[in-house]
Design a protein around this nucleic acid. Structure first.
Length: 790
DNA sequence: TGAGCATAGTTTTTT
DNA sequence: ACTATGCTCA
């Protein structure tokens, strides 16, 4: 049979038809299956759609579109032509056309968050059914942890190692500093962690680190901490998040056989959000894929906003340096925002130098101009946001259409206050995560100790909660004895009465092991996880402990129950595989911001940091605090690289908006207890003027008491708006002032002023914490005076 | 060992 | 301004 051009044509037509909901570049990416591929996916360009369709295409057709070795005879071709006309899919002709399906087991799809990986799994499951479950869709960390569960022994751990989160890590570093007599003030835990973390990112062991920084006092001290930290981690059979990557790479480098096993398995690799990968993650991918593999990375260098935690933009910028024969696809058509919003985003990001050239375009209409509002304070800013939301809700928008995105978490407080006042329902994303709550962590620590009694950090966390009168002293002598005898911390506790040093404390200490031991026993005997949890709560006395020692008892109790629910849910899903260790494994990598994320749909305005908003979209976006010193932040102002990162952040913020975008700044703002007057953010001036309408709050504050307020503002373009104060404040009559403390003024009140004397209140304005009263004084006429000054 | 005061530090955050 | 954390004293 000779190669027929006709068939090639038909085949392409079929596939183009089946994927006709994708634009050309998107289809390019989907059909390019073999070889390396870099997809530069601009904001809102349908990135996830491409990923899903690409995997679907791989599993159903494989590299069919671009393959040249498929053929069929004339008769079959005719059949196909008819099928094409009747709108059939090529997969329905698998008897006459040899498809090139790729086994799902050979596909690895890596994402950054569990949320993203769940989304991919769900969407693939919808399209492909259970076949999709054979795809490895996971995060870097869960993939590594899965691998390490087989080979951790090669790097000095058991395969049941515990995973330490950043809180555990912090505790351990603190302990190390104490032991080494290093002052926390001079070596802040945070900076030690980040130094160690970046050392691991570059595969530097504590020893290498020490050698490299031999002549640097500071760094060599950190090397000592690093060394001790590592020693203790191994003793506790625990790895931190960086270790998961580090050790996997180590094993792959040192054991070609194991590496080849996985190379063979993962013939096709996809990595999402590649701009966020760190050096070590990049290395891991290089090892798995080799330079000539079938690697597809998707990302957007303009949305790289995680440098501070190790993301390395060069990974994507220099992708074609590291991998051979790279095909580059640019997804530049934006399906999310109006043209004005997109133009604004484009013109801001254009000011960055280190980027792949890329320009988003859209077929959408221009839409509203971008609203720029100049407020006079952060309170006013929050008030304006509230009133704009209320106005639009009256016009028919849902609360869930709005999101307020801020640079720093500290900005949320004032905004929340105003939303509450105005009865606007809101939800905050990424606040205190469920698994970060104290009581949840405590109970998980208990479970961890039951699972792995060598886990010292978590043991120490709970040994004295509830109070067993085990203090610093006792702990130290246990540590010493452990060191002397070569036994583990927990073993010493179990046999405390055997050691003279521990005679006095032995009863207290044994009261702890008498709780843990039977639970270990029961767990080994195969007790159900949920029952284990129940008996833990029963015999640990934990509930009584928080009832007497902590506030918000009810809320904490709720969380304890919620953890119980979570365990029950886990059991239901995993059935016979619901072991304690598998549970701990799962939650150590899932720290989802909320357990119940089902309240998403309606009814809530969303508040979050710009970072947290990446990947999301909303019809109306508010961006408060566009000021020099806030956004871009203070510490970025004098470093061009940092500014570029901030600009990318601004780009992310702007591109979240679908229809309306509000940028706000305040001419004065309280920061760290004192008032600052920030200039408008440079990012505002980077947006072409013609795309913006400016509104401005009237500036009561700047006008000296007793002077007239200009009726119209100086700038013709600037129209004066009435801000929050004229809107209902949570049912309180807006014309009644709400003072922080004592007196509440109403219209017509008679006042006595120390200087101006007798007068009548003629107007009241809310200015955040207090009210501004307009008073007609008998002798000196109308003046505006803050209520606190009366 | 716990309660109460002083002090310092306040960007972003997933795993 | 506010809060979390450390240190002192009982």
């Amino acid at each position: 049979m000779s190669k027929s051009v006709k068939f090639d044509e038909i085949k392409k037509k079929f596939l183009d038809m089946e994927f006709s909901n994708l634009n050309f570049p998107q289809r390019d990416a989907v059909f390019h299956v073999d070889g390396n591929l870099l997809v530069l996916a601009g904001a809102g360009s349908g990135k996830t759609t491409v990923i899903i369709n690409r995997i679907y295409n791989m599993i159903v057709y494989g590299n069919l579109y671009n393959s040249e070795d498929v053929d069929c005879d004339a008769k079959s071709c005719k059949l196909l032509s008819e099928g094409l006309k009747n709108g059939k899919k090529l997969s329905e002709f698998s008897d006459i056309v040899k498809l090139h399906p790729i086994s799902p087991e050979n596909i690895l799809a890596i994402t950054f968050t569990n949320k993203a990986s769940k989304e991919i799994k769900d969407r693939l499951n919808k399209r492909l059914g259970d076949v999709s479950n054979k795809i490895w869709a996971s995060t870097f960390h869960s993939m590594c942890s899965k691998i390490l569960r087989n080979y951790a022994e090669l790097v000095g751990y058991t395969n049941d190692f515990t995973i330490y989160d950043s809180d555990d890590q912090k505790r351990l570093i603190k302990e190390c500093e104490k032991i080494l007599n290093i002052e926390e003030k001079v070596f802040p835990v945070k900076s030690c962690i980040s130094a160690i973390s970046s050392a691991k990112d570059e595969f530097m062991s504590a020893f290498d680190f020490k050698v490299k920084h031999e002549n640097n006092f500071r760094m060599s001290k950190i090397a000592d901490i690093y060394a001790l930290y590592e020693e203790k981690m191994k003793k506790s059979d625990a790895m931190d998040f960086d270790d998961l990557i580090f050790n996997t790479v180590k094993i792959f480098r040192e054991n070609k056989k194991i590496l080849n096993l996985y190379k063979k398995k993962f013939k096709y690799i996809m990595v999402d959000e590649y701009q966020d990968t760190s050096k070590s993650q990049h290395e891991l991918i290089k090892l798995l894929s080799g330079s000539k593999g079938n690697l597809c990375v998707v990302g957007d260098d303009d949305q790289s906003i995680y440098k501070f935690r190790g993301a390395n933009v060069e990974n994507i910028l220099d992708f074609d340096k590291y991998f051979k024969d790279v095909k580059v696809v640019r997804l530049e058509q934006n399906y999310r925002s109006t043209k004005n919003i997109l133009d604004a985003a484009n013109s801001v990001i254009q000011n960055n130098s280190a980027r792949k050239s890329k320009k988003l375009w859209t077929e959408s209409a221009a839409g509203d101009k971008i609203h720029l509002h100049v407020a006079y304070s952060e309170h006013d800013e929050a008030g304006v946001i509230s009133s704009e939301i209320l106005k639009r809700v009256e016009e028919g928008r849902k609360y869930s259409d709005f999101a307020i995105l801020y640079r720093a978490g500290s900005q949320s407080g004032v905004i929340e206050k105003f939303l509450v006042k105005n009865n606007i329902p809101y939800r905050m994303v990424g606040n205190v995560r469920f698994f970060d709550r104290k009581e949840v962590k405590d109970l998980i620590a208990y479970l961890s100790v039951i699972n792995n009694p060598r886990d010292e950090v978590r043991l120490k966390r709970v040994i004295n909660r509830p109070n067993r009168s085990i203090g610093e002293r006792t702990m130290q002598s246990i540590s010493k004895t452990a060191e002397k005898t070569g036994k583990t911390f927990y073993e010493i506790i179990q046999s405390a009465s055997n050691y003279p040093d521990l005679q006095r404390a032995s009863a207290k200490v044994l009261s702890f092991s008498s709780i843990i031991d039977p639970l270990i026993e029961e767990n080994n005997n195969g007790m159900k996880l949920s029952d284990l949890y129940k008996s833990l709560i029963d015999i640990s006395g934990y509930v009584e402990f928080i009832r007497s020692s902590e506030d918000n008892f009810n809320e904490r109790m709720e969380n304890i129950k919620e953890l119980g629910n979570f365990i029950a849910k886990f059991e239901e899903e995993k059935r016979e595989n619901a072991s304690l260790s598998s549970f701990l494994e799962e939650i150590s990598l899932i720290s989802d911001s909320s357990v119940s994320n089902e309240d998403e749909e309606k009814g809530f305005v969303t508040l979050m940091t710009v970072h947290a908003s990446k990947g999301l979209e909303f019809p109306v976006i508010f961006l408060p605090g566009f000021e020099e010193g806030v956004f871009p932040g203070q510490q970025c102002l004098y470093d061009e690289n940092e500014i570029e990162e901030e600009r990318r952040l601004a780009y992310v913020a702007i591109t979240r908006a679908k229809e309306e975008l509000f940028i706000l700044n305040a001419t004065s703002r309280m920061t760290f207890g004192s008032t600052s007057h920030n200039k408008p953010s440079r990012f505002i001036s980077e947006i072409p003027e013609k795309l913006i309408t400016v509104t401005k709050s009237r500036e009561w504050k700047k006008i000296p008491v007793g002077q007239r307020i200009p009726e119209s503002s100086q700038d013709i373009k600037v129209k004066s708006v009435v801000s929050a104060r004229s809107f209902g404040m949570g049912g309180i009559n807006p014309l009644v002032s709400r003072k922080k403390s004592d007196k509440v003024y109403v219209l017509g009140d008679i006042v006595d002023h120390a200087i101006f004397g007798h007068g009548v209140v003629t107007s009241i304005f809310d200015i955040g914490n207090e009210s501004l009263l307009e008073i007609n004084f008998d002798k000196s006429g109308k003046k505006r005076i803050p209520s606190s000054r009366l």
